[in-house]
């Protein structure tokens, strides 16, 4: 079962690479923001899966929750910045 989880982890990290291409390459700022949000959705799953691999899900769920909450705050901050300053 651990091998299965590790396989899923590797596949998810490769998928994160696809999002990362959009964040690095993205012509507009919205591509980058959307790519970052996609990375963060993968990130939460990766953290919980790591918890199952180490058999300490309770601690890793804390990290995943904190990351999810603060990532939402980051996206809101970006939106507020774009609203006030206009598009770059």
């Amino acid at each position: 079962m651990t091998t299965f989880f590790l396989f899923v982890l590797v596949v998810l990290v490769i998928l994160i690479g696809a999002y990362l291409y959009r964040v690095l390459q993205g012509p507009t700022i919205f591509d980058r923001v959307l790519g970052l949000n996609g990375i963060s959705t993968k990130a939460i799953i990766v953290l919980v899966l790591m918890g199952t691999v180490f058999e300490r899900v309770d601690m890793f769920v804390d990290i995943a929750t904190g990351y999810a909450l603060l990532n939402l705050m980051g996206a809101l901050a970006v939106a507020k910045y774009l609203e006030q300053k206009g598009l770059p």
Binding site: L20, V23, I29, R32, L36, G74, Y81
Partner: peptide, 11 residues
Amino acid sequence: DLMSAILLLGS
């Protein structure tokens, strides 16, 4: 673009 640099630093 410094905005993109910030997003990249977050990731």
